[in-house]
Computed example of a mutant assay.
Amino acid sequence: MKIKFTKMHGAGNDFIVIDAINQQINLTPAQWRQLADRRFGVGADQILVVEASEATDIDFRYRIFNADGGEVEQCGNGARAFVRFVTEKKLTAKTELKVATMKGIIRPRLEADGSITVDMGAPVLLPEQVPFDVTGLSSTDVADDTLWPLQINGRTIMMSALSMGNPHAVQIVDSVDNADLALDGPAIEHHVRFPNRVNAGFMQILDRHTIRLRVFERGAGETLACGTGACAAVVSGIRRGQLDTPVRVETRGGTLSIAWNGGTSHVMLSGPAVTVFEGEITLPAED
């Protein structure tokens, strides 16, 4: 099976983007994993699939597969790559799009300066909707935020649990450089209180408009940037009373900008999206 693809990245968070409008795509989890494998495939944090929409008022459908082969709900950096892809491939002439994802509608926009802004919707803050099991836990209120204790690796961390279309656990650390993501990331991702697993965010606050962030992503491990993780961290920091919108998010792969006015207002994510190369790969047929 031959598949044409485009390799892209958003602040170092890298993607394989596939046009499923002009070619037939029906892969197994094992084949998604092979595509994402950095030694035996193309290599990527996530694979993005562009599909035609069945609804007349929706421009495209957008699907996301993690490097472990599992389909997931949302990807903020991927949404920006998606816009760059459909624009460069001339699949649309619009600069503002309405795109269906597993978790609902997103509205990305190509700006005049070439950057891309994505309306990520309102954050989901109710634990049962993240989902996060709070049975038997005692929370601590910090300004407008609710911090929950989580037992990992023999100690307790205090974190915010929220969803940006996918689940996030955000904690504040003194230094992201000293955070042990290799140890703590998997422990948080697979914690029993997150039935759908979770993205683990480690946030260092530099000032009221600037943070540094590392994210251990569900199904991908640590990535150089995470768009929904940046949104979740900023929402948590603003709710804790420690940040003011807009916030510059410094990741290991680049810089993102997040704006959120609190409450039920939508989170706006802005940043770059870059095409790296195009290619074609042959995947062996599954038995």
Score class of each variant (00 low, 15 high):
residue 215 V to N: 03
residue 50 V to R: 03
residue 149 P to I: 08
residue 145 D to H: 05
residue 58 I to M: 02
residue 158 M to F: 12
residue 150 L to F: 08
residue 92 T to A: 10
residue 207 D to Q: 14
residue 66 N to C: 04
residue 262 G to Y: 01
residue 179 A to Y: 11
residue 99 V to S: 01
residue 284 P to R: 07
residue 286 E to T: 13
residue 86 V to H: 01
residue 162 L to E: 04
residue 198 V to S: 04
residue 159 M to C: 12
residue 216 F to Q: 01
residue 107 R to F: 14
residue 15 F to T: 03
residue 249 V to F: 03
residue 158 M to A: 13
residue 66 N to W: 03
residue 133 D to C: 06
residue 225 A to M: 04
residue 239 R to Q: 15
residue 56 T to F: 11
residue 256 L to C: 01
residue 24 Q to F: 15
residue 84 R to W: 03
residue 57 D to W: 02
residue 277 F to Y: 12
residue 65 F to D: 03
residue 278 E to M: 05
residue 262 G to L: 01
residue 68 D to Y: 02
residue 27 L to A: 07
residue 245 T to E: 03
residue 261 N to S: 08
residue 37 D to L: 09
residue 43 G to M: 06
residue 34 Q to G: 05
residue 82 F to I: 15
residue 219 G to W: 06
residue 171 Q to R: 07
residue 5 F to Y: 13
residue 205 I to L: 10
residue 238 I to N: 01
residue 226 C to W: 06
residue 170 V to C: 12
residue 83 V to C: 05
residue 73 E to Q: 14
residue 134 V to H: 08
residue 236 S to I: 08
residue 97 L to V: 13
residue 44 A to L: 06
residue 192 V to P: 07
residue 213 L to E: 00
residue 223 T to K: 12
residue 26 N to T: 13
residue 215 V to G: 03
residue 98 K to H: 05
residue 148 W to E: 05
residue 17 V to R: 00
residue 69 G to L: 08
residue 129 Q to I: 02
residue 260 W to L: 04
residue 235 V to N: 07
residue 74 Q to E: 09
residue 155 R to Y: 08
residue 14 D to I: 11
residue 234 V to F: 01
residue 286 E to Q: 07
residue 269 L to Y: 05
residue 149 P to N: 11
residue 228 T to A: 03
residue 199 N to E: 15
residue 22 N to W: 14
residue 202 F to V: 10
residue 137 L to D: 10
residue 46 Q to P: 03
residue 75 C to Q: 04
residue 44 A to T: 09
residue 119 D to G: 12
residue 43 G to E: 09
residue 56 T to G: 01
residue 145 D to S: 14
residue 88 E to K: 11
residue 282 T to H: 07
residue 275 T to G: 00
residue 250 E to Y: 00
residue 139 S to H: 14
residue 132 F to D: 09
residue 223 T to R: 10
residue 229 G to N: 02
residue 280 E to T: 11
residue 23 Q to K: 06
residue 93 A to H: 13
residue 269 L to C: 02
residue 34 Q to Y: 05
residue 262 G to M: 00
residue 190 H to T: 15
residue 116 I to E: 06
residue 40 F to G: 03
residue 266 H to C: 11
residue 257 S to T: 02
residue 170 V to H: 05
residue 14 D to G: 07
residue 286 E to V: 13
residue 31 Q to T: 06
residue 65 F to P: 01
residue 195 P to D: 09
residue 136 G to A: 14
residue 88 E to R: 10
residue 91 L to A: 04
residue 200 A to K: 11
residue 120 M to K: 03
residue 225 A to C: 12
residue 24 Q to E: 15
residue 260 W to I: 01
residue 97 L to W: 11
residue 59 D to I: 08
residue 176 V to P: 07
residue 60 F to T: 00
residue 5 F to R: 02
residue 72 V to K: 03
residue 158 M to H: 13
residue 182 A to V: 15
residue 149 P to R: 09
residue 263 G to C: 03
residue 189 E to N: 12
residue 23 Q to C: 07
residue 101 T to I: 05
residue 42 V to S: 04
